[in-house]
Computed example of a mutant assay.
Amino acid sequence: MGGPGLAVQELSVGYGPVRALRQVSLDVPEGAVVTVLGGNGAGKTTLLRAICRTLSFHGGAVTGGTVSLDGRRIDGVPPDRVVAAGISQVPEGRQVFTRMTVADNLRSGALGATGGRVERAAALRRVHELFPVLADRAQQRAGLLSGGEQQMLAVGRALMAGPRMLLLDEPSLGLAPLMAERIAATIREISAQGTSILLVEQNAALALRLASRAYVLEVGEVTLSGPAAELAASDEVRRRYLGVVDEDAAADAERARASHPALTRWKG
């Protein structure tokens, strides 16, 4: 791992009187893949919006704490300056421009990025190497792509800005298992190329395989954190997020059912 990367310290967020995040702290070191786990309503998407400075578009506001990239605070700058600083987000639900072509969707991802024509051409080559189907479908409307192809386009669009830090919001959502694994393989490749990744994901098993460190967010607060392998082995995480039941408890329940069979309905 490299330098300091992304640092979120004591971040609190509200939507009017509703507190959505409460003093959340996490770090994404340079070159790392870090995941945030949690159920619906835990505050995962709000966290990414706070980092990208798009909360105001959704009626939210940061009420405390700081966000820094490589030691420089970015919590007070507009969204376009966050992109210029090197952070891009892939939103939940893909949100591609369905009436625009694949090529135009990708071009839109470079808006606000630093660099000129040479850098944009290099970014496009990288995207096409990662997702050859996007080169093949360049002049096709994005709305005609499959769900998996739209997810590829959403990731490719974010990469067009040449980010050093990529924020992924539920990239496997709504995808068939095979396509989700293809997206996971791409995340590994993007990481191997040197891009840091903050991954928000409900598919805990997938996320814990990809990440080196994990945080569990519940009702706006970090309740667990540590190396991803340790959380994957945690009984609490296995029970709540991986669908694994404690083996001893399951055996006890099975013995109880065998020794006390359920009563059958009386027949008159």
Rank of each mutant, 00 (worst) to 15 (best):
Q9M: 03
G93N: 13
V90T: 05
A85E: 11
R209C: 08
T195Y: 04
R164M: 05
G115E: 02
P227H: 11
G109P: 00
T223C: 14
E30K: 13
R73M: 11
E189R: 11
T63S: 14
V8W: 00
R120S: 08
G71R: 15
A204Q: 10
A50E: 03
A135E: 15
Q150A: 10
S88G: 07
R265I: 05
A138V: 07
V118F: 02
V102N: 02
V133L: 09
S88P: 01
V216P: 03
L55N: 05
S172C: 07
P29M: 14
G86P: 06
V102G: 00
V28T: 05
L145M: 12
R157Q: 00
V83W: 00
G59I: 11
L106M: 14
L175H: 10
T98C: 11
A251D: 04
G38P: 01
T54S: 13
R72D: 11
V34S: 00
I190L: 15
V33M: 05
L178S: 13
D70W: 06
P171F: 13
L47G: 02
L6D: 03
G38Q: 04
A229P: 01
E92F: 13
Q140R: 12
G115L: 03
D169I: 08
S172H: 08
L159C: 06
D235S: 14
R239D: 06
F57H: 14
V222K: 08
V127M: 06
S12C: 14
R53F: 09
A50Q: 12
L210T: 01
L173A: 15
R53A: 10
G115I: 00
D75P: 10
R265W: 07
R188P: 07
A253N: 07
R49G: 15
T54F: 12
A154L: 04
A135M: 14
A161P: 01
S68A: 15
R240E: 05
A122D: 12
R72K: 14
G65M: 09
V237S: 08
R117K: 12
D136N: 03
N105V: 05
Q23E: 15
G65F: 07
A103Y: 04
R240L: 10
L130A: 13
L153C: 06
L159P: 00
S56L: 12
V24L: 09
S146E: 07
A229H: 11
A204L: 09
A113P: 03
L11Q: 00
L144H: 12
T114F: 03
V222I: 15
E254Y: 06
G156D: 04
S56R: 13
S234N: 14
M165E: 07
G43D: 02
D169N: 11
G59D: 08
P261E: 04
G143T: 03
A123E: 05
S172D: 00
L208E: 04
A138I: 10
R213P: 00
A103L: 06
A207T: 08
